[in-house]
């Protein structure tokens, strides 16, 4: 099958969602919206609540693509990918947001472990990508600057 590259990311995300939909409904509710984790007000709180353990820094294992300066804080593009085996989930956390947990994707081996989404950021913050694979939790982080802009020459 030939897929236009511009549409590829979209389809990939669609497949990730599809993978979630085949899960039993009871499980789905808990997986799709981990309420406690979304209510946590710190990055470590979110990670603890989701995984019951701290994440290990592993910049070499996770690809995190974010802008150095956000063009629009309301829609900051974030792409997370990894070549780790047995990926169970990819999580995006914005440390300085009032509710740091922004997105949590539960994946199976049936999809390639790469997700793209857009997050809202109130101010400059580290953006944290957390990957759970084979029971272990890894993370990497990059600073995204949000500025009021203007006055550039």
């Amino acid at each position: 099958m030939e897929i236009l590259p511009a549409r590829r990311g979209f389809l990939k995300n669609l497949m990730a969602v599809g993978a979630m939909l085949v899960l039993p409904a009871s499980l789905l509710a808990a997986l799709v919206r981990p309420q406690a984790a979304f209510k946590a007000d710190s990055a470590t709180g979110s990670v603890q609540s989701l995984f019951g353990q701290d994440a290990v820094e592993a910049a070499d294992k996770i690809r995190l693509k974010v802008p150095d300066i956000a063009e629009n804080g309301a829609v900051v593009p974030v792409t997370v990918g990894t070549d780790l085996e047995g990926v169970e989930s990819i999580t995006i956390i914005i440390d300085n947001n009032p509710t740091p947990l922004s997105a949590n994707f539960n994946l199976t081996d049936a999809v390639s472990a790469e997700v793209s989404t857009r997050v809202k950021m109130g101010k400059s913050s580290p953006v944290r990508a957390v990957v759970k694979a084979q029971g272990k939790v890894y993370y990497t982080t990059k600073e995204v600057k949000v500025t009021i802009g203007g006055c550039g020459g």
Binding site: I69, A70, E71, N72, T147, G149, G150, C151, G152, G153
Partner: peptide
């Protein structure tokens, strides 16, 4: 690189 930030988007 920062045209939409430094100038009107």
């Amino acid at each position: 690189p920062y045209t939409p930030v430094a100038n009107p988007r």
